[in-house]
Computed example of a mutant assay.
Amino acid sequence: MTIASTPTQDAERPLRKDAARNRELILETAAEVFAEQGLEAGYDEIARRAGIGVGTVYRRFPERSELVQALFETRIDEMVAIGEQAAAIPDAWEGLTWFFEKSVEKQVADRGLKEVMVQTLSESGQMTVGRERIGPIVESLMERAQADGALRQDVEVTDLGMQLMLIGSLSTPEQPELWRRYLTLLFDGLRARPDSTPLPLEAPPDEAMHMLMCNLQGRRA
């Protein structure tokens, strides 16, 4: 037997759709505002640009940490998509370097993205989430390049993860694309060569990444 919906149930459906639309609108607008002003930007500016009341922003994300977390998850999805595109590039070295170039390019263009990634990844629980989503993709790109003899064999995933975060901070108003200089130097250092200098220490373990991310933020773990 089919149960007819009640007026109350019918009224709830548009509200749920509106809530979902508002959430996406807030996230899109927050990403724009944070890209320009950083994570310290106020909810009032997000609400003004989104054309909604500031109360709506607070209802969806009562705590700023909740908004940052939602943006972090969105950014991880974007990084995964970039990684999948890189994996589809036939040349292994080109795929690896394209992934890093696009990733850093996105960081530099979006100030909020870098702050979101550094702040959220510095939390040990979120470090695990990010590593589980992105780690296998980066590892696959690296293994493919190493199998082709293009990438040196002693490089680890954590090496590239830290380089990605560091190079993403290397730009100035006068030289907004300064990071490309250092990314090129990094790529040259990653190339497999008979005369490559052996790396003096082992790469840091995954557990040490939490402390290193905290160091990037200038705070204690």
Results as ranks from 00 to 15, higher is better:
Leu15Gln: 14
Arg13Gln: 09
Cys214Lys: 11
Gly161Leu: 12
Gly125Ser: 07
Glu40Leu: 03
Gly95Lys: 13
Ile134Thr: 08
Pro90Thr: 05
Glu139Gly: 07
Pro200His: 11
Glu101Lys: 08
Gly51Ile: 13
Arg75Ala: 02
Met117Pro: 09
Gln119Pro: 02
Arg64Gly: 02
Gly218Glu: 09
Leu166Lys: 13
Glu66Tyr: 03
Leu151Thr: 04
Pro62Arg: 15
Ala145Pro: 03
Val80His: 03
Gln146Gly: 00
Met162Val: 08
Ile167Ala: 03
Pro173Thr: 14
Leu199Val: 10
Ser122Thr: 11
Glu45Cys: 01
Ala70Cys: 07
Arg133Ser: 04
Ala4Gly: 08
Ser122Ile: 14
Tyr43Pro: 02
Glu202Asp: 15
Ile46Arg: 07
Ala221Ser: 09
Gly218Ile: 12
Gly83Pro: 00
Glu45Gly: 02
Ile3His: 08
Leu178Pro: 05
Trp179Arg: 09
Asp44Tyr: 03
Ser122Gln: 13
Pro14Lys: 12
Ile134Lys: 04
Val116Glu: 02
Asn22Met: 12
Pro136Thr: 10
Glu94Val: 06
Leu166Gly: 04
Val108His: 01
Asp148Gly: 02
Gln85Ala: 03
Leu178Asn: 06
Cys214His: 05
Met1Asn: 12
Gln119Tyr: 01
Asn215Ala: 07
Glu66Trp: 00
Ile89Gly: 06
Gln153Ser: 01
Ala86Phe: 10
Ser140Phe: 00
Glu78Asn: 11
Leu113Met: 12
Leu201Gly: 00
Glu143Lys: 11
Val57Ser: 08
Leu25Gln: 11
Gln153Val: 03
Val129Ile: 13
Pro204Tyr: 04
Ile137Ala: 04
Ala87Glu: 05
Gln85His: 05
Ala47Phe: 01
Cys214Gln: 11
Leu15Cys: 05
Ala30Tyr: 00
Leu170Ala: 06
Thr172Val: 02
Arg59Ser: 05
Ile52Lys: 03
Pro204Val: 14
Leu15Ala: 06
Arg13Asn: 08
Lys106Ile: 08
Glu45Pro: 00
Ile89Val: 14
Ala147Asn: 15
Glu105Ala: 13
Ala88Arg: 12
Glu78Gly: 01
Glu84Asp: 06
Met211Asn: 10
Arg64Glu: 13
Asp148Cys: 01
Val138Met: 14
Pro194Ala: 14
Gly149Met: 14
Glu24Phe: 00
Gly218Phe: 03
Ala88Tyr: 08
Glu123Leu: 10
Glu174Lys: 15
Pro173Glu: 13
Lys106Glu: 13
Leu25Met: 12
Leu212Ser: 11
Ala47Ile: 11
